[in-house]
């Protein structure tokens, strides 16, 4: 019983991290049809910025995190303007290659600035304490991750369903040319959703540093993980990424608890099963 609840809670919080980082990737891949292998780079940039702000600059966590996220968004929007706008028109393979190149440059930049050690992020002492939930105790840090993930999922859902921007975004995902000819400024939508996705990735990178340690080779090491969530969830589907992230998080955590010697093998087998049966992912559309 306690093992089961541990698996569910830990798997769920792991899933929330995967969701935060992957959801932006899902939107860019669904909207711009870009295979963006550099997406994990934004999580790394966020993590590295948070590391610098909290440990070297000595700024408090609650100010440092929004600053690091904003900084990542600024970098991402600049990169969108300079690099990605051309990539949209590339073939699939060229996109893979171009974004691998960008990933290498991000890794090299972080490696140059901070070295290749693990970049610790100083969290407030409250995060280290545990609270009693009745059936088990839970580190506050993990609770923060779960709450943040749920809030973001709810916020994204509200934004997509209820706001003007959300309607325009959905229109652009469905048919970009038609949306543009109806007067929707798709260039602006692209830039904004790209920045939003990068910001969420940065937040996920910072909050998830406990599970996925931040270091220079982060984007290469975990890239596959994020892509799997997107592919399993279905391109461009936020709900799909949410459920895929939770399911994969729980499967992976369960495997680590029950058969630790098999590592991530079940994660990939689950993915292969889903993609073989549903090539477009759980909630992917034609």
């Amino acid at each position: 019983m306690s093992v089961l609840s541990s698996i569910l809670v830990d798997g769920f919080s792991y899933g929330m991290i995967l969701f935060m980082i992957s959801v932006g990737l899902s939107v860019t891949m669904g909207l711009m049809r870009v295979i963006n292998l550099a997406h994990g780079g934004f999580a790394l940039l966020g993590g590295a910025a948070a590391h610098w702000l909290t440990t070297i600059a000595g700024i408090g966590y609650f100010i440092a995190v929004p600053l690091a996220v904003l900084l990542t968004v600024a970098i991402a929007i600049a990169m969108e303007r300079v690099l990605y706008r051309k990539i949209y028109y590339f073939s699939e393979l060229q996109q893979v290659l171009a974004t691998i190149g960008i990933t290498f440059l991000i890794i090299a930049s972080v490696n140059y600035s901070f070295g290749s050690t693990i970049l610790a992020i100083k969290v407030p002492d409250v995060f280290r304490t545990s609270i009693d939930l009745g059936f088990r105790t839970l580190p506050v840090h993990r609770l923060v991750v779960i709450v943040a993930g749920l809030l973001i999922a709810a916020g994204l859902y509200f934004m997509l369903e209820r706001t003007r921007f959300g309607i325009q975004l959905r229109a652009a995902v469905d048919n970009r040319d038609m949306a543009a000819s109806l007067g929707i400024n798709t260039v602006r939508i692209y830039a904004l959703s790209f920045g939003l996705g990068a910001g969420l990735a940065a937040l996920g990178g910072i909050l998830g540093a406990e599970l996925l340690p931040v270091e220079a080779y982060y984007p290469l090491r975990y890239m596959v993980l994020f892509l799997v969530v997107v592919a399993v969830g279905g391109l461009g589907s936020i709900a799909g990424s949410f459920f895929a992230a939770i399911a994969l998080g729980i499967i992976d955590t369960a495997a680590r608890y029950i058969v630790p010697e098999y590592g991530t093998i079940f994660f990939f087998i689950a993915m292969m099963l889903v993609l073989t049966l549903r090539p477009r992912g759980l909630l992917g559309r034609e």
């Binding site: 590339f90 171009a98 691998i100 290498f104 440059l105 890794i107 090299a108 930049s109 490696n111």
Partner: peptide, 14 residues
């Protein structure tokens, strides 16, 4: 820092 060179090379090609 050799990865800078490789990254730049890849982007130049693409």
């Amino acid at each position: 820092n050799w990865l800078f060179v490789i990254g730049a090379l890849v982007l130049l090609v693409v």
